[in-house]
Computed example of a mutant assay.
Amino acid sequence: MPADEKPIASVWTRPRRPQRELLTREQIVAAAIELLDLEGIEALSMRKLGTRLNAAATSLYRHVTNKDELIELVVDDVYGELEVPAVADRAEWRAAVTRSAADLRAMTLRHPWIAPELGQVGLVHFGPNAMRMSSGLLAQFEAAGFTADEKDRAVGTLMAYVIGIATSEAAYLSQIARSGKTEQEWVAALRPAFDEASQEHSQLRGGSSARQDVHPQQIRDDDFAYGLDRVLDGLAARLHA
């Protein structure tokens, strides 16, 4: 790194300040996640979080220097919900990766606000939980037989698919939640308008009609599994190339 170039600022790259009061970083992070789950990323502010904790915003700044650092902390805490994949043998790598991908999607849908944070291009997650998860995935692809160069790209491809799908789903489910309807009610309410708009598009009508009696969540699960299988088919083909 050039002498005049500053390192990337991150809560994970500076020393943790000594504890001097009852309020802890862990309490701050837990309260922030509760607020985010209830009201979304737009509602998060140091002042609002301080009110939730019955503490002055200045007390929070003893633990995090700004909102960006707080986001780093909450993202990594949520990553801690994921089970780090145990290294599988070469014959089982695909099943292990599939479980990890499904866990990541489920975690994102539990916390819809996290989807944009995971999907930011160029954002590196230095937190210990995120690092353990990434290392675990790399170990799976290494066990599968991918070269050192390709295993990084394989993990990147997998994450891009999962985060991309989960981001779209999270936005869709958040819109439904704001409507006050269940997913089934929301889809049923849209059906007449879709049928009318697609009268001259038989391909659209045919595909939609074939699945109109299937629960919308099952359709989302099936679509995710289909896309994941195709991604893994392509990656597996590289092992035989």
Results as ranks from 00 to 15, higher is better:
residue 84 V to W: 04
residue 122 G to E: 00
residue 90 R to I: 07
residue 79 Y to N: 14
residue 106 A to S: 13
residue 78 V to N: 07
residue 110 R to K: 10
residue 130 A to V: 02
residue 159 M to K: 08
residue 134 S to E: 04
residue 150 E to W: 09
residue 164 G to D: 05
residue 137 L to C: 00
residue 130 A to N: 06
residue 144 A to K: 08
residue 78 V to E: 05
residue 89 D to G: 14
residue 117 E to T: 08
residue 121 V to C: 01
residue 114 I to F: 00
residue 77 D to L: 13
residue 152 D to E: 15
residue 115 A to I: 04
residue 107 M to P: 05
residue 133 M to E: 05
residue 122 G to P: 02
residue 73 L to D: 00
residue 76 D to G: 13
residue 105 R to E: 02
residue 90 R to A: 13
residue 162 V to M: 09
residue 107 M to C: 15
residue 70 L to Q: 04
residue 155 V to Y: 05
residue 146 F to P: 10
residue 145 G to D: 00
residue 88 A to C: 10
residue 141 F to I: 03
residue 67 K to T: 15
residue 128 P to E: 05
residue 94 R to C: 06
residue 125 H to F: 10
residue 95 A to H: 09
residue 72 E to W: 05
residue 78 V to T: 13
residue 94 R to I: 01
residue 104 L to C: 11
residue 106 A to K: 07
residue 136 G to A: 02
residue 105 R to M: 04
residue 103 D to A: 15
residue 113 W to Q: 04
residue 108 T to V: 11
residue 116 P to Q: 12
residue 132 R to C: 08
residue 94 R to M: 06
residue 124 V to P: 01
residue 86 A to V: 13
residue 112 P to F: 07
residue 139 A to F: 09
residue 110 R to S: 12
residue 134 S to R: 09
residue 83 E to M: 02
residue 142 E to R: 02
residue 92 E to Q: 15
residue 87 V to I: 13
residue 156 G to C: 11
residue 82 L to R: 08
residue 139 A to Y: 05
residue 98 T to N: 09
residue 99 R to E: 11
residue 98 T to W: 08
residue 160 A to P: 00
residue 134 S to K: 06
residue 156 G to D: 14
residue 74 V to N: 02
residue 162 V to F: 11
residue 159 M to T: 04
residue 150 E to L: 15
residue 105 R to V: 02
residue 79 Y to P: 11
residue 118 L to F: 13
residue 72 E to R: 05
residue 144 A to Y: 03
residue 146 F to V: 07
residue 116 P to K: 07
residue 102 A to F: 02
residue 140 Q to W: 01
residue 75 V to Q: 03
residue 76 D to I: 12
residue 135 S to Q: 03
residue 148 A to V: 12
residue 151 K to Y: 10
residue 127 G to K: 02
residue 104 L to Y: 10
residue 107 M to H: 03
residue 94 R to W: 05
residue 153 R to A: 15
residue 159 M to A: 05
residue 71 I to T: 06
residue 103 D to N: 09
residue 115 A to K: 06
residue 128 P to W: 01
residue 98 T to K: 12
residue 139 A to G: 11
residue 101 A to P: 01
residue 164 G to C: 06
residue 110 R to I: 08
residue 136 G to V: 10
residue 97 V to A: 15
residue 121 V to G: 02
residue 90 R to S: 15
residue 131 M to L: 10
residue 145 G to Q: 03
residue 122 G to R: 01
residue 87 V to D: 06
residue 116 P to R: 12
residue 76 D to M: 13
residue 132 R to H: 13
residue 134 S to Y: 00
residue 163 I to M: 04
residue 126 F to Y: 10
residue 69 E to Y: 01
residue 96 A to R: 00
residue 79 Y to K: 10
residue 135 S to W: 02
residue 150 E to S: 14
residue 124 V to Q: 08
residue 143 A to M: 09
residue 108 T to Y: 01
residue 87 V to W: 03
residue 94 R to E: 05
residue 107 M to S: 14
residue 163 I to K: 07
residue 67 K to Q: 13
residue 90 R to C: 11
residue 128 P to C: 08
residue 115 A to Y: 04
residue 130 A to S: 13
residue 160 A to C: 03
residue 108 T to S: 14
